[in-house]
Nucleic acid binder design. Sequence first.
DNA 1: AGAATGATCCTCT
DNA 2: GAGGATCATTCTC
Length: 212
Amino acid sequence: MLSVSDSVDAAIVRTAWQELWQYTTPEIAQRLLGALLVHATADGLLVGRIVETEAYSSDDPACHGVRTLADGSTVHRCTPRNTAMFGPPGRAYVYFTYGAHYLLNVVTQPAGQPEAVLIRAVEPLEGISNMCTRRGTAVVTQLTNGPGKLTQAFGITGTYNGHDLSQPPLRILPGDSLPVAEIAVATRIGISRATTRPWRFYVRQSPWISKR
DNA sequence: AGAATGATCCTCT
DNA sequence: GAGGATCATTCTC
């Protein structure tokens, strides 16, 4: 049974969600800080607050939708793995790497323009004991402080690749933008190309981020 | 068909 | 701080 206030709340969230995609990808990465990642599982609700993100753009050699040619130029390349990146904004791009980890991205630009925001860390809010079970640890600060860790804690796998993140069971609920003073800017982690772009964003002094 | 690479994590020292 | 695990994806031959 849906109450009137629930409907109003849903409309507000829907508006904030759709307005997000008019910004550039680095701007969206900052605006996703503070948003809630929500997964409704058979074992219960899992909720986390996003505290760390990275932007990947369509002119960015580090982006999965971009290929660097021998002459140093870059082209867009749609492949079976990165197809979701070429789809509409607001969808998930989930991929598997290092033979072990799923990484969750949010597609940010209109279809054909491969850009996305990697969710690198969240602050666990609800379903923490469930997350501990999934992660195999009781150390709460180690549950979701990395892109591979948080997908394991939340039970997010490749089945969500292409999923509309405004819809259950896996959603992102935008919140108010953080004050600029609370947002730290740094270079991205774990990449070998375009390493100097300042496109990693995190909540300053948060104990839940992956790395200082 | 073969080889290289990787938006990571964990376990050491 | 360094190195290994582990395998899907992608490119090259």
